Amino acid sequence: METAGTAAPKGTAADTQLVEIVLPGITEPEGLQIRRGEIPVPGAGQIVVRMEATGVSFAEQQMRRGRYYDQPPFPFVPGYDLVGTVLTAGEGVTPGLVGRRVASLVKVGGWASHVVLDAADAVEVPAGVGAAEAETLVVNGITAWQMLHRKARVRQGGTILVHGANGGVGTVLVQLARAAGLHVIGTASARHHDALRALGVTPVEYRTEDVPARVRELAPGGVDAVFDHLGGRSVIDSWRLLAPGGTLVAYGSATTRDDSGSKQLPVLKILGRVWLWNTLPNGRHAYFFNVWAGRALGKDRFRARLSADLTQVFESLRRGEVTARIAARLPLTQAAEALRLAESGTVAGKVVLVPEDGAGTSAAQTQ
């Protein structure tokens, strides 16, 4: 195998060879490998999607450290989501789907030039929405939409606190919240404050300010919802900042990304606190959000809800309520550089991987 900083052979046609990025084990980004092979053939009910854009999310940052709580055994192809065009379809699939641009949430497998999907897991991307723009809103948009509208359900005029308001999920979440008529307080480093103010967010500097004290100044009666991806001590502070009847939505443990030991323990601690807090007679509610937990509804209901919610996010993009923030576009075979860039904390928006022939004139085209 090649390393994931190696350029593809010159003259390789887009649909003559499968190219995928392999995470072989716990490694630095430069340890990612490139594997080449034959383009897969779809089975009954399946489609093959020619990838046009796939993203680097926080999940991959955890996975390469072995810290994502339900990642598959090594080696595997990472890639939480993707957008692409349906190349071929298997038996039982509507023929009209071939040639359509679709998006899909896959958890793993997206970092590949061609991906086999169940046709039922593909959500059509509206006309006029570009592949990279749509990609920034798949896992981030679904997560933000469902946390805001299916869990917190804050009434118009309410106030929420979003940790990491400049991050992938946070950026979408604050825009959806503003479109819903909510007041938003967002934590971020100082260099992102002007961008947050432009979105109508009241920023709080988490490195130099006492976040709980500052939020209490801004919302003396407490906030109606907190969205916390940090875990650890932060989730306790978030619970204490809630107004009566407020809702905490925890959805990660980012502060433990570089820890050693059990990868499940940080999440189990949050789950334990959520269970305990929900037994208290104070009218507040707590959730640990995992988009895949919706599968408990049954496969068909899960797919229908995911499709409906992602369609709503795409419509918000078309209406201008949400913007697609692309930090950089890099070729798939430069996944190592893309992962390193995403982990640097120096960019705003999502780092997107594109096919070799879709990378543009620059290896790291930023916007």
Rank of each mutant, 00 (worst) to 15 (best):
W292D: 15
A14F: 13
G5W: 12
E321A: 14
R325P: 08
L161V: 06
P281Y: 03
P126E: 05
D224Y: 10
T171D: 15
W239R: 13
S189A: 15
D224G: 02
L332P: 02
Y251C: 15
A8T: 12
P40D: 09
A180R: 07
M63K: 05
Q71T: 11
G167Q: 01
D300P: 05
Q367K: 15
Q33D: 00
H229P: 14
T85H: 02
V322G: 06
Q62Y: 11
W275F: 14
F289W: 06
D237K: 06
G221V: 07
A7I: 12
E217S: 13
E28W: 02
G360T: 06
E337Y: 11
P24R: 13
Q62V: 07
R257N: 11
A177G: 13
V351G: 05
A243L: 09
P9V: 07
A327W: 01
A179Y: 06
N290T: 11
G130I: 10
L241F: 01
M63S: 08
L330Q: 12
G130N: 01
T88L: 06
R65S: 01
H285I: 01
T136L: 07
L332T: 03
G246V: 05
L310M: 02
T88Q: 10
A328V: 13
P331C: 13
E217Y: 11
R36E: 11
S307H: 14
L241N: 01
A144Y: 04
D300H: 11
K151G: 04
V174Y: 05
S238M: 05
V201W: 07
G200D: 12
A296C: 05
I47C: 06
S260F: 14
A119G: 03
L117K: 09
G158P: 08
T88N: 06
A198M: 02
V77P: 07
E356N: 15
Y206P: 09
N140A: 11
G261A: 03
L182R: 02
V56D: 05
T54L: 08
A213N: 11
W145N: 10
R301T: 14
V48E: 04
R284P: 03
S307Q: 13
A304W: 11
T159M: 03
A14R: 15
N140F: 08
A89R: 04
G31F: 12
I21D: 06
G130D: 14
Q367M: 15
V223E: 02
Y251A: 06
Q175K: 12
L353G: 08
A131N: 07
G5V: 12
W292A: 15
M1Y: 12
Q367S: 15
D121K: 00
H183Y: 14
G130K: 04
L341N: 01
A324R: 00
L23V: 06
G55Y: 09
G11W: 06
V106S: 12
G55N: 09
T366A: 15
G181S: 10
G222D: 09
K263D: 14
P331F: 03
A308P: 09
V215L: 10
T27N: 05
H163D: 02
G158V: 03
I142K: 03
A219S: 13
V108G: 05
R207V: 08
T311M: 08
V19P: 01
E209G: 09
A44S: 14
V98C: 01
R50N: 04
F227L: 05
P212S: 03
P9G: 12
V93A: 04
A293S: 15
A120L: 04
K269Y: 00
M51S: 10
H163K: 01
I34A: 02
V123A: 10
G358L: 08
S113K: 00
M63A: 07
V169K: 02
I326D: 00
L182A: 10
